[in-house]
């Protein structure tokens, strides 16, 4: 069953003092997110990711097209009971502490009064904010606010969670924690829709991704398929012989640092390269398939029109 259905969604922003200048944020996109999926929305800056999320949250109104969540129109009040939302760079009431904020929000989402404290504490713990739960939010760091933002998105145990760039502002440990959190939401059977322009994050946790660019949908694909499709390259490293001309000629990338060499070759050439390394008397260090798949997919989708324009 489709949890999110987006059909020909368009958004035209009117800007300028007289609101005369029009700017197309979304040019008619359609896709579906299935139940229990972790769905990534990818795209460079200004692609329309936040616009899509704001329309889904009812914060702005689409200029055309329809969007449904859990089979209901997005403006149906019942939808809001079942969803959680982390905005891009969350701004939260800075006169409250994280715990107060979560209790307030839990109340707004209809959590019964006696459960609010318990649920808020649990959500903060999940987001790694237990220790700072009673610290005024105006003293929180950017990363801490991001964590509070994530906690408020899940405090009322929603069925669908929308996250706009959930990893931004976090340190590497934080990123991993958020990744694990999304994973655990996935394990609980929740649907997660999140936007990012960091590809490795999406690659690691998404079931499927949509690629947006300048308001247009460039493609929707299953990540596993993408990976296998693009798996055609191997990275080979060795030591002792910096210049093996026969390999350099067939390499896609060849890089020597002192005694160590790193070469990227087509998967089909692996055996020939390995043989050449042995014959040259170098010491083979590693042979690894390359995982740049999503990045390539992404760049290919995003760059295509640019190249066309250049030609």
């Amino acid at each position: 069953m489709a949890v999110i259905e987006i059909q020909n969604l368009r958004k035209t922003y009117k800007t300028g003092f007289w609101r005369k200048t029009e700017k197309e944020g979304l040019k008619g996109i359609s896709f579906e997110v299935r139940e229990g999926e972790v769905f990534g929305c990818l795209g460079p800056n200004g692609a329309g990711k936040t616009t899509t999320l704001k329309i889904l949250m009812g914060l702005i109104f689409p200029s055309g097209g329809t969007a449904r969540i859990l089979g209901m129109d997005i403006h149906d009040p019942r939808v809001k009971q079942q969803i959680g939302f982390l905005p891009e760079q969350p701004y939260l009431y800075d006169y409250l502490t994280p715990l107060e904020l979560l209790e307030y929000y839990a109340g707004l989402s209809g959590v019964p009064a006696r459960e609010r404290r318990k649920r808020s504490e649990a959500a903060l713990a999940r987001a790694g904010m237990s220790e700072a739960a009673n610290m005024p939010m105006r003293k929180c760091s950017k990363g801490m606010l991001q964590r509070v933002g994530i906690a408020q998105a899940i405090v009322h145990d929603p069925k669908v969670v929308f996250l706009d760039e959930p990893m931004s502002g976090l340190d590497p440990i934080g990123r991993r924690e958020v990744r694990e959190l999304i994973q655990s939401l996935h394990d609980e059977g929740k649907t997660v829709f999140f936007s990012t322009h960091i590809l490795t994050d999406a690659e690691a946790i998404c079931d499927r991704v949509a690629v947006l660019d300048r308001g247009e949908l460039k493609g929707v694909d299953v990540v596993a398929d993408l990976l296998s499709k693009a798996r055609g390259k191997v990275e080979i490293t060795w030591q002792g012989q910096p210049k093996i001309e026969s390999i350099r000629a067939m390499s896609l990338d060849y890089h020597a640092t002192g005694e160590s060499v790193r070469a990227v070759v087509k998967e089909a050439d692996t055996d020939r390269v390995v043989d050449a390394v042995r014959q040259a008397g170098a010491r083979l260090v590693s042979v690894t398939p390359v995982h740049g798949a999503l990045e390539e997919y992404f760049l290919a989708k995003v760059d295509a029109p640019k190249k066309e324009a250049e030609e």
Partner: peptide, 14 residues
């Protein structure tokens, strides 16, 4: 202005 409203209006608050 400060967008604190986003997280409120994404809840069942008309």
């Amino acid at each position: 202005e400060k967008r604190t409203l986003y997280t409120v209006l994404a809840r069942p608050v008309a």
